[in-house]
Design a binder for these strands. Structure first.
Length: 259
DNA sequence: AATCCTACCAACCGCCCTAAA
DNA sequence: ATTTAGGGCGGTTGGTAGGAT
């Protein structure tokens, strides 16, 4: 192990590792000029570099390529990253294809440093979410009792404001899609025992369902509710995006009932 | 001034896929 | 049908810089 100790910038099995020197960069650039991209394992032999093919490819793709965009990620790029990550998850290369000049590595690093922490905070909040869910269930039971008392005198009033408050109370939870449908239906029948019909149920369900359509939802610069957004690891496949844009949509819908 | 902490990011690793031999 | 080389991808590591204590 003596001469091949695993440290930065030392030789391992004949290959140099660690940070690239300016001279190595120059040799690699020269190689690509002459031979084009590809055949990376030939670089060592043809360019006189003591780097393996993988290392050369990575250096070129992530750092030396002339079409790379330097500098800070712009707010617009950040928005694109957020939207595409919501859609694709950690498929960094797929996301990178939508951001010319940015590499998957760059985007991945950006994501981890800027947003991963929020995801952790969100995960820490999951216990609180469970407590909120319990309170919500209790609330629904109360509502059911209340509704039974009022049922006799209930008129055919479509009170969307009550629905709004119920939805807002639950804004941070992350239900599954079947739960969402069930909840929408339950909320509707709780509040509108006599009036709810298929038409209204379809509407209520679409309200919940629209909340999961992030690309449209985050095409706004409003404050995003990160708690709901970053919980994807824990709730893979059951993502619920809650943000002010959705609530704004809901308010609009409430003001203009959907018939 | 020294130490600690955090953000940033270049580079590596292991796994996987694909095409050619 | 199998093997192998080349390359892509996502996860992780470790060095560095700068700010906070």
């Amino acid at each position: 192990m003596a001469a091949e100790q695993l440290a930065w910038g030392v030789m391992e099995e004949g290959w140099r590792k660690g940070p690239w020197t300016a001279e190595e960069d120059r040799l690699l650039i020269e190689y690509v000029k002459l031979h084009g991209e590809g055949r990376w394992n030939s670089v060592a032999r043809l360019a006189g570099l003591k780097r393996n093919g993988k290392s050369c490819r990575l250096r070129w793709v992530n750092y030396l390529r002339p079409d790379l965009k330097r500098g800070q990620i712009t707010p617009h790029e950040e928005k694109v990253i957020l939207e595409l990550h919501a859609r694709w998850g950690n498929r960094w290369s797929t996301i990178a294809r939508s951001l010319p000049g940015r590499t998957d590595n760059e985007i991945k690093n950006y994501w981890r440093t800027h947003f991963k922490k929020k995801a952790k905070v969100s995960s820490d909040n999951s216990e609180k979410s469970k407590a909120r869910l319990l309170r919500r269930q209790q609330f629904q039971q109360q509502q059911l009792l209340l509704q039974q008392q009022q049922q006799q005198q209930q008129t055919q009033v479509f009170d969307m404001r009550r629905l709004m408050s119920l939805l807002e109370e639950n804004e941070n939870r992350v239900p599954t899609l079947p739960q969402m449908k069930q909840d929408a239906s339950a909320a509707a029948t709780t509040i509108f025992p006599n009036t709810i019909d298929d038409h209204h149920q379809v509407f209520l369900y679409s309200v919940f369902n629209n909340s999961a359509a992030l690309p449209e939802a985050t095409n706004h610069d409003q404050d995003i509710n990160w708690d709901g957004l970053w919980n994807m690891d824990e709730f893979s496949g059951n993502i619920y995006y809650s943000n002010s844009a959705n609530r704004a949509t809901l308010r609009t819908s409430a003001a203009t009932p959907y018939y």
